[in-house]
């Protein structure tokens, strides 16, 4: 399965649009893009997961690395428009309390 990663610069923040599946095969590409953005001092990064229908725990690892990188670089990371199944992963793992995750869920699969 594939993942497309598209970055748009929008009113002083970097918006990352993802579509597809995040798993062990696609995670390295996402990690590279995400960290290049969170490593910019003070950057605001918003990741839109509306088109992500599957994510496994490797994907969580990518966002945890992203979170740690924001703390070192004084940048910000926010995840928005998560589908139910993906949102549930953040909820179960308790990461919802440490990563800024938009609580409005898209529903459907």
């Amino acid at each position: 399965m594939n993942l497309t990663v598209d970055v748009q610069e929008n009113e002083g923040k970097s918006v990352v649009l993802l579509a597809g599946e995040i798993d062990a095969y696609t995670a390295p590409k996402l990690k590279e893009t995400l960290l290049s953005l969170t490593e910019k001092e003070g950057n605001k990064v918003e990741v839109n997961l509306e088109q992500v229908n599957y994510m496994d725990s490797t994907g969580l690892g990518v966002f945890v690395s992203g979170l740690k990188s924001t703390k070192e670089n004084n940048s910000e990371l926010k995840l928005v428009q998560l589908q139910d199944r993906v949102y549930r992963l953040f909820e179960i793992t308790g990461l919802i309390d440490v990563i800024d995750v938009d609580k409005t869920v898209q529903g459907g699969y």
Partner: peptide, 9 residues
């Protein structure tokens, strides 16, 4: 049961 994964904070 509520709690965050080990190793994050």
């Amino acid at each position: 049961a509520k709690g965050v994964v080990l190793g994050v904070t």
